[in-house]
Design a protein around this nucleic acid. Sequence first.
RNA 1: GGGGGGAUUCCAGAGCGGUCAAAUGGGGCAGACUGUAAAUCUGUUGGCUACGCCUUCGGAGGUUCGAAUCCUCCUCCCCCCA
Length: 435
Amino acid sequence: MIDFIEELKWRGIFHDIMPGTDEQLEKEMTAAYIGFDPTSDSLHIGSLSQMITLKRFQLAGHKPVALVGGATGMIGDPSGKSQERNLLTTEILNKNLAGIRKQLEHFIDFESDIPNKAEMVNNYDWMSEFSFLEFIRDVGKHISVNYMMAKDSVKKRMGKLDDGQDASGLSFTEFSYQLVQGYDFLHLYQNNACKLQMGGSDQWGNITTGTELIRRKAGGKAYALTTKLITKSDGGKFGKTEKGNVWLDPEKTSPYEFYQFWLNTSDEDAEQFIKIFTFLTQQEIESLIEEHQQAPHNRRLQKRLAKEVTVMTHSQKAYDTAVDASEILFKNGSIDRIETLDNSTFMAVFNGVPKFEIEKNELEKGISILDLLAEKTKVFASKGELRRLMKDNGLSINQEKEKNVERVFTSSDLIKEKYILIRQGKKKYSLIEIV
RNA sequence: GGGGGGAUUCCAGAGCGGUCAAAUGGGGCAGACUGUAAAUCUGUUGGCUACGCCUUCGGAGGUUCGAAUCCUCCUCCCCCCA
């Protein structure tokens, strides 16, 4: 059996642990849960490492429990937030829960007939039954306000900040979040024999409220394990691009963009990420790192990382298409190559590229480049921006550099009889389609 | 309640009657180099029918030939003393 904690440690994701956790894991098959916040209808790659942690836990012979926060999502976790959160409506929450369930099922085995098959629970199922009075009598009585106020996530929102400014304060609703999450742990401890809660290091406070509650109310012993929050070597926030979050839902982030995100990982981060986000063995990873250091320009590490994560998240097919698209868009992307693509491949390659439309007859009349790209379509925000780009030699039309501001377009400029391909700089494509 | 300071272009932050579409830095975009990396260097960064015109310096008025700059009122923010 794989030593789960050792595994997390060499992968560099281990953060903190409550004493006794390792003994518990050695002693017996243990159930552990991680909570997922339904703040959106898809998880993004920030949650990916948590899902993988659950998966590793399962591979180590233990039983993972994925909790979707139907109840806690209604409240909002103050951890890591400097401002009071807006509440989600029930309708949005339900939609989000459904989306997240689907993604969790894709990663973790909830189906097969193994003793440690995964379970999914929704804390709304037990919290919605709770009356306020019952809750404050049965749960609130066991935890002191002093204890709750000592949490970092709460302290940061009260009194003065380091720079002397007043903290933003937090509502009773957010203050009570940790109790609700703590109760989840108690509930799962009592009903699902769940003895361990895992989460990001920002969850430590919430998790220990749970173990405390279990100790006081059930007289039981429960454990906590946290993983490091993933950071980038340049200090930027992990999982964000200019376009925002990188989502696991292919509708929100196309497999091509997803693949590109991982491919563009910096050298230092790639060494870290391949350990965290793949199931490759230590030997495999070490030899990859060594290969990469020998010939960094080949970017073997990034390619392998991107492959593993894309196949795992989407599919082998989606990965193949993403690689094809990358080849076409970055390497030998001659216009002839693009012209000879069949329609479905063409659409796959340009899936996720912003698309703009133009009336057929406008093009037949002939239209100037400035009007086409900055007036009729909004490929560029202003004509000035487009002029500047052309002056800097940064615009390509159908893969040919274009510097002529007077250029006029007609039907003869179409590729595949209905598109004009615009490229800004090296990698930013847009597609105009006639309608 | 009393006293003081401030609001400037994406952000930070100069400007304090004409030479201001507004210094400088950051960020963005592009070019060179390269590995679709990092670092570096270069250009660019309100709009347009472009050697000119239009819209911008919290909001509304006013003084002036001329205002981001002066005056009045309003809104919001911060600091100090109670």
